[in-house]
């Protein structure tokens, strides 16, 4: 049997700074994450980056002590180089480079979207799923084919998590917005009319946001609004997921990313999977949002397949596309 490998991974693409430690059997030895909560409005990249530098030493130290490991016992450092917000990415990259040099460890480049996919596969045991990846910054439907994850559907404008958060802010709901919308939606009774925009295998959410905000200003019940917003947004996503499932003929469907925790979205996608005799799985809640463990686990997969990067070449890639990444471990 191959030697056990332990990888420490750092996530810092957006509002979460995380450190995870995972071994080559897929055991999550530590997963410590600290999320920046803006006082008001959306993410300010520089403020978020400042938060990351502030919490980084403590997050990393806590992760090591949770795993009961010292840096010497870690085999490699995995860094989430993108896609994401430049200033935030640079904090993680700078720390990882410093750790790699100071402790003489190999550095492993990890794509954030690939990490959300791999952690979902690890935790569900699925081998070749159609992937629905939904978070604050991403809405992607993908599947593996011939060396890479290929994109079969996506948003044409804003991401699903972004839609829910932005609406919650407009409605002055307390943080975190997404879960609040979900709670209120459960008490919704009336389906209000909103735009349903599907184009091919893609969705468009910006028109939905504008229309929902307009209804808000007209004084509709907030419960009905949340229910209607979710019903439209999730039905659109379920439809394009179904299109991709029929098109790719995959037999597994997995939901990952921060919005995966939403139970109504899970319910809809489960029905899509059932229609096409596919198995359905969801990433566990603790690993659905941005986290260090998914970077560490993807780092393990990459490392044992010889993927490392020179420190001098470890530039951040704010626009690193999912379908640009070679996947040698499948």
């Amino acid at each position: 049997m191959a030697r056990r490998v332990v990888v420490l991974g750092i996530e810092s693409t957006a509002h979460t700074f995380g450190c995870g430690i995972v071994d080559s059997s897929g055991n999550i030895l530590a997963n410590v994450n600290n999320t920046y909560i803006p006082a008001k409005g959306g993410i300010h990249p520089r403020e978020s980056a400042q938060h990351h530098s502030d919490v980084a030493p403590r997050v990393i130290r806590t992760a090591l002590s949770e795993a009961k490991l010292s840096m010497d016992q870690v085999d490699a450092i995995a860094v989430s180089l993108g896609p994401g917000l430049g200033p935030c990415l640079r904090v993680g990259a700078t720390i990882c480079r410093a750790l790699a040099v100071a402790y003489d460890k190999p550095l492993i480049p990890v794509n954030h979207a690939v990490a959300h996919i791999e952690i979902a596969k690890l935790t569900t045991g699925f081998k070749d799923p159609l992937i629905v990846f939904v978070s604050g910054g991403n809405t992607i439907i993908a599947a593996y084919s011939d060396g890479r994850y290929r994109v079969f559907g996506e948003t044409l404008d804003i991401a699903l998590g972004n839609l829910l958060d932005a609406f919650a802010r407009e409605a002055h709901l307390p943080h975190p917005g997404g879960p609040r919308v979900e709670e209120l939606a459960k008490k919704g009774e009336r389906l209000l009319k909103l735009p349903y925009i599907v184009k091919g295998q893609d969705v468009s959410y910006s028109g939905l946001l504008t229309a929902a905000v307009k209804l808000l200003s007209e004084g509709h019940r907030i419960e009905d609004l949340c229910y209607s917003l979710q019903e439209y947004a999730f039905s659109m996503l379920a439809e394009v997921a179904e299109r991709a499932l029929a098109y790719t003929e995959k037999k597994e469907l997995v939901l990952t990313g921060g919005v995966a925790a939403n139970s109504e979205l899970q319910r809809k996608l489960m029905m899509v999977a059932e229609e096409h005799n596919a198995k359905f799985g969801v990433v566990p809640k603790a690993l659905s949002g941005d986290n260090g463990a998914m970077i560490a686990w993807t780092g393990v997969l990459a490392y044992v397949h010889g993927v490392t990067i020179n420190v001098e070449k470890s530039y951040v890639k704010p626009r690193w596309r999912l379908d640009e990444v070679d996947i040698p471990w499948i």
Partner: peptide, 16 residues
């Protein structure tokens, strides 16, 4: 332009 909007975080954030 469409591809950038859908795929890259910065272009994707809602501006209302």
């Amino acid at each position: 332009e469409i591809r950038r909007r859908g795929r890259y975080v910065e272009e994707r954030r809602a501006k209302i």
